[in-house]
Design a protein around this nucleic acid. Structure first.
Lengths: 216, 216
DNA sequence: CGCTGAATCGCATCATCATGTGAGGTGGCG
DNA sequence: CGCCACCTCACATGATGATGCGATTCAGCG
């Protein structure tokens, strides 16, 4: 890893003053970083957005007084779309991780990590990576796989799946018939087969099952 | 990192013979690993499950001849539930990553990684982590956040959301009226308001929109 | 106090749907 | 070849749904 000629500009948003200051000092000392912003809460950092140029990276705590770090994350992304946001916190519970990722965090680091790891992670993020603690990664993978559970197979044929997609798109029988160049009767027949296979009796039930069990 | 007294038992499933052998040798040389199985495809490895004791970890390629590594992953998990499965491949495209994770991989490494990183990653996995290349991690995060897009607000009232939930559950108006102890007329009225707010004209459309945009 | 939005209920009417029953045509497989 | 699964189309009928046009109650707000 070579140190870039231009230092990486960086803001810290962290309510623990001594930790924030010592981290800033340590990062600058490792070389290649310039901590141009240091804030104890999101509100101040967001206010600074208006009259300062955006940094390349913001390290953000989640357990902040006032505005929650995750709520702040969304706002930072709005006012500084090209700035990368890295969560730096002591929390590693599913809910916080999940919400941070959904809000668009580019990395999730733990405060327990040594400074040189944090420095490496920041560089990594700028190069297109998303560093995260491997325990955090485990949680993310677990959440992910729980999203896409058993792919049940109801034995739907290709044609039936096609029809089902049109139903999910909100079309009625006549529209589907037109778009597929079929008779309404044929669409009707396909639908009854879909209902039988999915064990439902209405279109809404079929659509709900298709979306909830990811049949398409 | 201290080397455990008992070596970690390990299988390799990888169709490139020379790579597989050299990796096995290299891992054993770093100490702490015992490559007790070496297979060029999933079928052989799965057959071996029946008369050999399961290893602690399997490193699995995804671009295998015959059975796909991801399909194999599911089967390994069935016959050896406590064995951890780590993907080791050259591919880093969204689809493969996504499917591997959904199938229950505990880690996703790239073959380009140095052997000592692979060794560290295996130990990390056994300690409850899920090591992954940080570019892979970026993809995972991107997929994740695309799952939970902007939470639009259509201004649905609490009552309307309730009705919508029953619709998603596949119930018809009369059933919803009964369960909520309401008149069918009331349910009818709520539904029209839902249709107006969601800009749809059918129940299926409303259900589809509710599920796809996570309105509940 | 009047206004507004939400929730409740009513009737009517036409459109759409679900379902029973039937049948002709294709392509693959043993 | 027959069998079977799939796709296609048809008619009919009762059930359900969507929508126009009402009404009453009630809580919150300026």
């Amino acid at each position: 890893m070579t140190i870039p000629s231009e230092p990486i500009t960086l803001w810290l948003v962290e309510d623990n003053d001594s930790f924030r200051r010592s981290l800033a000092r340590a990062l600058e000392k490792t070389g290649g970083f310039q901590c141009s912003g240091s804030f104890s809460n999101c509100e101040n950092a967001l206010a600074a957005c208006r009259d300062r140029s955006a940094p390349q990276v913001i390290l953000l705590d989640v357990g902040l007084p006032g505005m929650d770090g995750i709520a702040g994350l969304r706002l930072f992304r709005q006012s500084m779309p090209s700035t990368l946001l890295i969560i730096l916190t002591v929390f590693e519970d599913d809910d916080k991780i999940f919400r941070a990722i959904c809000a668009g965090a580019s990395g999730y680091l733990l405060k327990t990590a040594p400074v040189r790891d944090i420095a490496a992670a920041i560089r990594d993020t700028l190069e297109g990576g998303s560093p995260m603690n491997s325990r955090v990664a485990r949680r993310v993978l677990a959440m992910f796989s729980s999203f896409a559970p058993e792919q049940k197979d109801y034995g739907l044929t290709a044609r039936e799946k096609e029809i089902l997609q049109f139903m999910v798109a909100g079309h009625i029988k006549k529209e589907i018939a037109d778009r597929m160049s079929l008779s309404v009767h044929t669409v009707n027949t396909h639908m009854r087969h879909i209902y039988e296979k999915l064990h439902v009796t209405t279109g809404t039930g079929a659509v709900a099952k298709a979306l909830q069990e990811r049949l398409l």
